[in-house]
Amino acid sequence: MFKHLEHPADIGILAEASTLEEAFVEGAKGMFSVMCDLSTVKAEHRIEVTCEAGSIETLFVEWLNALLLQADLHSMFFSRFKVQITKRADDSFKLAGFAWGEEIDAPRHKIGTEVKAATYSGLKYKEERGIHSLQCLLDI
C-alpha cells in the first residue's frame, strides 16, 4: 500500500509492502498518483529503469527520480512497475526495473500536480515484523 503524507507545501509518500521490491513499486505508484489518476493509465509501453546507491533509502530516492526522468523524456505516465534489487560486495545497492505506461493524455488521465523531484527530506526505511516501509518527501 501507499499513502500520501501531509506537508504544508509538498507531499510525502509512505510505501509499505511485505517485500522490499514491492515497497519500491508502491512508492512509485504513490508518486505517479500525485500526477494523474493511475487507474486511467494503460500499461502499454515498457521502459527500463536502472539506478544504484549506497543505501536502501537513497536507492528509493534514486528510483523515484529515475522514473521522473524517464516519464519526462518520453512524455509518459507510468502505472505498473517491477523492480529487482541486489546488494553488491561493497554493500551498495543496484536496482534493475521496468515501468509500464502510456503517453500523457491530459484530460483522460485527469492530470494532477507535477512532481519536481523526490528529496532526502523525511527519508526513512525500516523493516518491522516482515513489513518494509519507505518514505520521503516529493517536491511539488
Binding site: T58, L68, A117, T119, Y120, D139
Partner: peptide, 10 residues
C-alpha cells in the same frame, strides 16, 4: 532545473 537538483543531490 529539476534535473540539476536531482543530479547534484547525489
Amino acid at each position: 532545473g529539476h534535473q540539476i537538483g536531482t543530479d547534484y543531490l547525489k
